[in-house]
Amino acid sequence: MSMIKVKKLNKYFGDLHVLKNIDLNVEAGEVVSVIGPSGSGKSTLLRCLNRLEEPSSGDIIFEGISVMDDEHHDINELRQKMGMVFQQFNLFNHMNVMENITLAPIKLKNMDKDQAKKVAEDLLKKVGLLDKAEAYPAQLSGGQKQRIAIARALAMSPDVMLFDEPTSALDPEMVGDVLKVMKDLAAEGMTMVIVTHEMSFARDVADRVIIMDEGNIIEEGNPKQIFNAPKHPRAKDFLSRVLNLF
């Protein structure tokens, strides 16, 4: 079953046409990596999925429901089922880790405090940071913050997780911990859309890789095919540049 269906999505920032007639399908349980040069529109595409960025035209169907249909569906309820992880983590700075994770379940799902705490503890175990439950974001490293941010998103038990360059702001030695959490998540069957610069992650974990350039999807397919034999000349160019780094 298709979990997210993007139909003829366009996005303008003023005169700048950043997404051009994008069509995209994400199946339930699928891990999709979106790669491409900076400015290609990949983050904007991701942020349109939960309407943090307002699409200029087109439609996005999530689990059979249009996220654009404000008359019949509350976007806030749809967002509860779409977890998001940001490049800059965006942990709530005035709350400790436990409060960061439990706030939304308590406020939005009417979970009682003890139950929410139990959920949070399980998630903290999963990301390997149970000992940081009382810490404040300022006391954590970037890698720790990002794993907490993942736990916070998971606490709402979303059906899909959107990752917006989750490792781009991390020191190199922190990247591995975050990627491991994401790999585990993928192995559990979570549907994931990941905008990333981590080519090895895209190659090893993704079921499908999408290459964007200047607001278009220029190539998509399974990672092997994309990384070994890209067809589009711009895709070839992009991959040769980023893969040479390794």
């Binding site: 939960n50 943090l52 977890g83 998001m84 940001f86 965006n90 406020k107 939005l108």
Partner: peptide
């Protein structure tokens, strides 16, 4: 953005 993305 983080708060809104959680559905708040």
């Amino acid at each position: 953005e983080a708060a809104r993305s959680l559905g708040m």
